[in-house]
Amino acid sequence: MKRLLTILFAVMLLTAISASAQTFTGCFAHHPKYIEGKFEVSYSPGCTGHDEPELDPVSSAPGSARDLTWTVVLPTGGSARVSDVGPTFWFGGAVTDPKSVFGQAFVELQFYPDSVVGKCFNDGAFSVSFSPNTFTACSPVFKLNQTGNPSKFLETTAFNAMLEDSANPGNPLIMHAGETITIHYYVTPANDGFHITVTDLNTGHSGTIILNSSSEGPLMPVFDTQQTGNALAWGTVNDTPNSFVWEIGHASIFTGGDAFCVPGQTNCNSYDPASWAGFSPIQIKSVTFGDGSSPKNFAAVSDLGGKAEVAQTCATYGGSFCIYPWFTLGTSGFHYGVDYPDTRKDFGQANQFATTEQCGGPSGANTTFCSTILK
């Protein structure tokens, strides 16, 4: 028995060493509106998008969409790795872009779990190496281009940059599981683009990205207030300008090649409750606006209809690989995944997400998913 355990440990160690020695690449674009024959969007080659359930801090305070700070404790792997359930989570928002459809683009500050970023590519892609319980980030900004056909569009990238350590320029800001970080989105009098400053409160290290595109110019926030309905014009949801999203519907980038996947597939840990329960969840401690105020409410929305998506590929809802993860409020903050030991409210679990498009947008009535007020 002892010899068997030794062999198993050696195999696990060799697997980890092998993974850490490899470079993995991916590109996860923003999920656009798609109406067949009217508004058909294709991704750039090598990029894909899928399922983007989000948490929205809601406020009517002047400037709330132009200056906000998220305080977050990073998740920690356990019996499951954080990267098992999806290759990225992000904090993002709608920004101006004169060369994009509707004059709008979307920034995603993408955190890559169990990863050290090697490069953030101009086309929105990234390369990483495996490093357990480590987080690094890139900031792709996605836009829509005309194609010459009035009903067909191509999603490309207006900007992308690595979140660098200000104390070690040219190298990624490396953050670790369990550390508390702040993500501050803000503008300056220079109007030189949305600024993003991430600070690791445990190490004191920080990094700043300024969304100033060499091809598009400064990319500024589209909206002034963080109100529901101030939504990306080419998006699929009726939400707030800025949000938190955990990108799901992809296999692990390290063991599954970040393949597009759906509920019911056994390589799709995004929809597996045991995988989410196997690590300590993200803790969204607070959101604070520039005037010192806090959100009036928090809302949630899924761009694929939550349980409605599961129903398409699972015979019944529930069990292994057939749940839709949900937001909870625990004693330590908001989480995403399943009910955790500190959960106080789970807001009906997956029932918190609207399953049909009943809100409007530029494409007309009943063309976007409505957000649901959680608290």
Rank of each mutant, 00 (worst) to 15 (best):
L4P: 04
Y43Q: 13
S332G: 02
F102V: 11
F121Y: 13
K119T: 08
G103T: 12
K307D: 09
H50W: 13
P221K: 12
T180C: 01
G77N: 03
N242G: 02
S275W: 02
T236L: 09
M1Y: 14
F111I: 05
G37K: 06
L329H: 15
G193I: 09
T316E: 11
S100N: 06
T182P: 01
F334W: 15
D272T: 04
W276S: 04
G249W: 05
E247M: 10
F89D: 06
N168T: 06
F159G: 06
G78H: 05
N168Y: 11
N171T: 12
K143M: 15
P57Q: 03
T199M: 13
K307A: 15
T15Y: 09
S20H: 14
Y324E: 13
A125E: 04
L329F: 03
N202H: 10
T156R: 02
F142V: 11
A311C: 08
H50Y: 13
P53N: 07
F321E: 04
L232F: 14
V141K: 06
H31R: 12
E52Q: 11
G264A: 06
S166T: 15
G118N: 07
D224G: 14
P45W: 07
V101E: 11
C138D: 03
T203N: 10
V245M: 01
V310G: 12
T331D: 03
I35G: 02
F279M: 00
E52C: 05
V338N: 07
G204M: 10
K296F: 11
V117Q: 00
H31G: 13
V141H: 12
T182N: 07
L144W: 10
V237C: 03
S129V: 01
I248F: 11
S206Q: 07
T208R: 09
E108L: 11
F321Q: 08
C261E: 09
D342Q: 00
A177E: 02
V301T: 15
L14M: 15
S127D: 00
T96Q: 14
P189S: 02
T343C: 03
S129K: 11
I284S: 05
I210V: 15
V117P: 00
A105H: 02
I210L: 13
T356E: 01
T182K: 03
D200L: 03
Y34C: 03
N168P: 05
G229Q: 08
T266G: 00
V58C: 07
Y112D: 01
H335Y: 06
P113K: 00
C268Y: 00
P325E: 13
M220K: 09
L109T: 06
F39Y: 15
G217Q: 03
S206Y: 12
Y186E: 09
A167S: 15
H50I: 05
I284R: 06
F347P: 14
T147S: 10
S129M: 02
S270C: 08
R81Q: 15
I248Y: 06
P169R: 11
Q226S: 04
F102L: 10
L232G: 08
P273W: 05
T367Y: 01
A167N: 12
S243N: 11
P172V: 01
F28E: 04
D303G: 08
F298N: 12
K33W: 05
P113Y: 02
L109M: 14
L68H: 10
C120Q: 00
T236V: 14
G361A: 05
P32K: 04
T134D: 04
